[in-house]
């Protein structure tokens, strides 16, 4: 692990995030869009953990109690992100189910009732 620099993790995180953003913009199925949003959230988690391990690690000699707290804050955030993402999935799939029952189709190109 010590062989991999922080920049590599951040770059991977950025790449995953951009993949997610592009996917949200170009895909048509709400389920796939949803998967892309999850990819974005996982990129965020990776970034948080990389910062917590490299930037503020209490294990590196000379780092203080404050660094330990910093590392903990990032790790805590990851747990919250995962919990919130799970809650979002529950509501989102419910909405998609409700739409499927109404029109047997969930393509978002055909959602054009609302326009002005």
């Amino acid at each position: 692990m010590s062989g991999v620099p922080l920049a590599a993790y951040l770059a991977l995180g950025l790449f995953m995030f951009m993949t997610g953003v592009v996917g949200v913009v170009i895909r048509r199925s709400p389920i796939v869009i949803f998967m892309c949003i999850e990819l974005m959230l996982n990129a965020v988690n990776l970034t948080f953990l990389a910062f917590a391990r490299y930037q503020f690690s209490p294990m590196v000699a000379g780092n203080s109690f404050k660094e330990g707290q910093s590392a903990m804050a990032g790790q805590m955030m990851v747990i919250f992100v995962m919990a919130v993402a799970a809650a979002e999935v529950a509501v989102g799939l419910g909405i998609i189910m409700a739409i499927f029952r109404l029109r047997d189709n969930i393509d978002i190109d055909e959602m054009n009732l609302l326009k002005g």
Partner: peptide, 10 residues
């Protein structure tokens, strides 16, 4: 209503 909910959610 459902369409607006999905748009808002996504």
């Amino acid at each position: 209503g459902e369409e607006s909910a999905l748009k808002y959610f996504l």
